[in-house]
Nucleic acid binder design. Structure first.
Length: 767
DNA sequence: GAGCACTGC
């Protein structure tokens, strides 16, 4: 290690706590470490563990003991994870006598995983993958010798599917835990139970920003925590006297930024707004206002205006990071992306509107809505902190102190705001049957859990007792929402899996069309023209497939994408996912699946079509979609109008998405199926991604939806005995039925004998 | 009469 790097590492705030941390990790199973950005926790902490001889020997000893004690356990999971061989976790047998330490660090974002692995490899003067590496979807730099793996949280969840005890690791570090991403929340629970089973041979470290950590502490059995101070400068916070109204929000934000520009010293200005369109509107308005000020004779120092949000191209984004000259100030209008994902240097001032757009899922209606709502205190603090990274700063909050006090402490964790079907299926496929009483750090509502179980039951992923079916196992292999997985598996049976892989892949990414804001009137009109040229009356799914195929036929041509107003980034991403799914589908045995489908109505329909030689692939694609989404069937309410009535829940009225091909061609089919339900909270749901179907295809399934017994689905009584209990119950049921039958037979026989006796008697009398 | 924050397998 070079002296320079060594010196740098010694100056990091976490260095002072090195011995304290090592002591605590040695003595405890769970440890929480808090520290703000710049403390060095994510890069240094794993290195401390890796380089400490005492810790290494101690943990290797514990591991050896544990693996020797562990009785040969039957593989409880029949599932093979989707991970490629390269990504598979290390086989425990190799680990028994190994003297290497294996550490995994999870990150909520791919970029973070990559850059940290690179940084640590650099600090240790090693090539990536030898000692330190990263593993994210579609990209893996680790080998069998890699001791320190930086992975995205979703990757570790998938690894848990293969070995829920995580025997390939000695230490798990869950980084950025305060963000409470969906998979981190799932990992909290999985890692907690794994650590208990590992009896001290697995260390779990949770690292978080310096926030309220009581929730972590109580969840991890009151474990110790070490507080590391960050390296940041003070930020002065100013409040408005009044709260801003929605109409004036952009107006006030621009004025505040301009005031700062005219009266404050050096340092760039970051303005937090709820949406991307707000960013564009503000930049335009700011430009106009500055021109006005200049015209009125006031001297305006040199300034550059930028916007920053997620749906921009990376070229647009990277402009923001270019350094302006010394006398020019940058004003950046940004969304939440600058709160955690992207860090801009040199920010001296922050303007915070106090609002954010957030996706909220309503389990009762199954509707996803994007709502503008007030931020949490945590978010306000996080935004403020963006000003104090390189210099002392100021944060101007466009709301009153009272408003701040009224904000909720924390942002609602993601697990509380999403459709839980995939999480529940994941747990069930790991042998965790009683999901209703599963110990999450924060418990999702009963209703959300029940509705996700209902959905899983409707697509035959679980049986009426709530236990996972072979079909459910098959679905859990796919990195998809269960309904998409179902459609894909069905498509294999219906001989259209390569088409369906593409469709599902496209639906898993952001829109393959370019996003053009209403501000750009000409561009928007052109987009609509092109979309109508590519519209296929068969529906949105087949239209998307058509466009995607055209791009592929044009040999992934960049110019073609530009001319057709397609988003190259999501096209490429779609193709990546398509390949991954294709590989997985090929790994699904047709013979095995056949047994799931023997009694399936849609499959019988397909066979019939195939035999009558009227078969066409579009119909098979639609039948496959129906198998995963039949509960999203809707029928047209009036002639020629875009209002539909859902089959279930009864009486639910939904609208057609203005972006749908059916709106574009102004034709509305009698019966449709849709794969997404959106809208804002005030109005009724909007069907997104719609395809025309024949009502007869799905009719036989409707009775399913009405008769679901939620009580039975959620009532798994015997946690410990699990499957045996249900097996026992079934056996009992069968026995009871047989007994009943016997009894009936007996009664019949008795009756018969009585009649016979009577008859005989009568006969006698007669005689 | 209606419109798209941010991630991730």
């Amino acid at each position: 290690m070079s002296q320079e790097i060594q010196q740098f590492r010694a100056t990091l705030p976490i260095n002072e706590f090195k011995s304290e941390i090592l002591k605590q990790v040695l003595e405890n199973t769970f440890i929480i470490i808090t520290g703000d950005t710049g403390s060095g926790k994510s890069t240094q902490l794993p290195q401390y563990l890796l380089d400490d001889e005492e810790f290494r020997l101690n943990i290797c000893e514990r591991r050896k003991k544990f693996l020797e004690e562990q009785v040969e356990e039957k593989e409880q999971t029949k599932v093979q994870g989707f991970l490629s061989k390269k990504q598979k976790p290390f086989i425990p047998e190799d680990r028994k006598n190994s003297t290497d330490l294996k550490i995994v660090v999870t990150q909520p974002r791919r970029m973070a995983a990559i850059s940290m692995a690179k940084r640590v490899a650099f600090e240790r003067n090693q090539n990536l993958g030898i000692e330190v590496g990263y593993s994210i979807r579609f990209d893996n730099s680790t080998t069998n010798t890699t001791q320190l793996r930086y992975v995205t949280d979703g990757i570790l969840v998938r690894e848990c599917l293969q070995d829920k005890d995580l025997r390939g690791y000695d230490v798990v570090i869950l980084d950025e835990a305060h963000e409470r991403s969906l998979y981190t929340d799932v990992l909290f629970a999985l890692v907690k139970t794994a650590a208990r089973r590992r009896k001290g041979s697995l260390k779990v470290i949770i690292t978080s920003a310096t926030l309220n950590i009581n929730i972590f502490k109580s969840y991890f059995e009151g474990c110790p925590y070490v507080k590391v101070h960050g390296k940041s400068f003070p930020v002065e916070v100013k409040y408005s006297e009044h709260n801003i109204t929605q109409q004036k929000r952009n107006h006030d934000a621009v004025n505040a930024a301009i005031r700062m520009h005219l009266h404050e010293g050096p340092g760039d200005i970051l303005v937090f707004l709820p949406g991307s369109e707000d960013c564009e509107v503000c930049r335009k308005f700011c430009y106009e206002r500055l021109a006005e000020v200049l015209n009125s004779g006031v001297e305006v120092p040199s300034v550059l205006l930028y916007t920053l949000y997620g749906s921009q191209t990376s070229e647009d984004q990277s402009q923001v990071f270019q350094r302006a000259d010394e006398h020019t100030r940058k004003i950046i209008f940004c969304t939440n992306i600058a709160e955690t994902s992207l860090t801009i240097d040199n920010i001296g001032f922050v303007v915070d509107t106090g609002y954010v757009k957030q996706k909220v899922y309503n389990p009762r209606t199954g509707m996803d809505s994007l709502i503008i709502q007030p931020i949490s205190k945590t978010q306000a603090i996080q935004r403020t902190g963006r000003a104090g990274r390189t210099q002392a700063g100021k944060c101007y909050r466009l709301f009153s102190k009272q408003f701040y006090e009224s904000l909720s402490e924390h942002t609602t964790a993601e697990i509380m705001r999403v459709n839980l079907a995939s999480v529940m299926l994941l747990l069930k496929s790991m042998g965790i049957d009683d999901v209703v009483r599963f110990e999450f750090m924060e418990q999702p509502t009963q209703e959300a859990i029940l509705q996700s179980l209902r959905q899983l039951y409707l697509i035959q992923a679980i049986d009426e007792d709530g236990y996972i079916t072979p079909m459910g196992y098959e679905m859990s292999r796919y990195p998809l929402e269960p309904s998409y997985a179902k459609a894909l598996i069905t498509s294999k049976m219906m001989e259209c899996s390569s088409e369906m892989s593409a469709i599902v892949a496209i639906l898993s990414t952001e829109s393959i069309w370019q996003r053009i804001t209403r501000v750009d009137v000409d561009g928007y009109q052109k987009l609509q023209e092109i979309q109508s040229q590519h519209a296929d009356p068969a529906g949105d799914h087949l239209s998307l497939l058509k466009v995607f195929s055209e791009w592929k036929q044009a040999v992934f041509n960049e110019q073609f994408a530009k001319d057709t107003l397609l988003n190259l980034r999501s096209l490429k991403q779609s193709d990546n996912i398509r390949q991954q799914l294709q590989q997985l589908v090929e790994g699904t045995s047709r013979k095995k699946c056949l047994q799931f489908y023997e009694q399936d109505y849609l499959y019988k329909l397909f066979r019939k079509q195939k035999d009558s030689k009227k078969w066409n692939i579009n119909e098979s694609i639609k039948l496959s979609l129906c198998s995963g989404f039949y509960f999203n069937t809707a029928r047209k309410m009036h002639n020629g109008e875009d209002t539909y009535l859902m089959v279930y829940p009864e009486g639910t009225v939904v609208d057609t998405d203005p972006q749908s091909v059916y709106t574009v061609i102004q034709q509305y089919p009698e019966t449709v199926i849709f794969t997404e339900l959106g809208g804002t909270s005030q109005v009724r749901g909007v069907m997104k991604l719609i395809s025309e179907i024949n009502i007869e295809w799905v009719k036989p399934y409707f009775s399913n939806m009405v008769k679901v017994d939620l009580f039975k689905l959620a009532r798994i009584e015997f946690q410990q005995r699990g499957r045996d209990a249900v097996h026992e119950r079934r056996q009992k049921k069968i026995q009871e039925q047989e007994k009943q039958k016997e009894l009936e037979e007996k009664q019949k026989l008795e009756k018969h004998q009585i009649y016979k006796a009577r008859f005989e008697q009568r006969k006698k009398v007669k005689m």
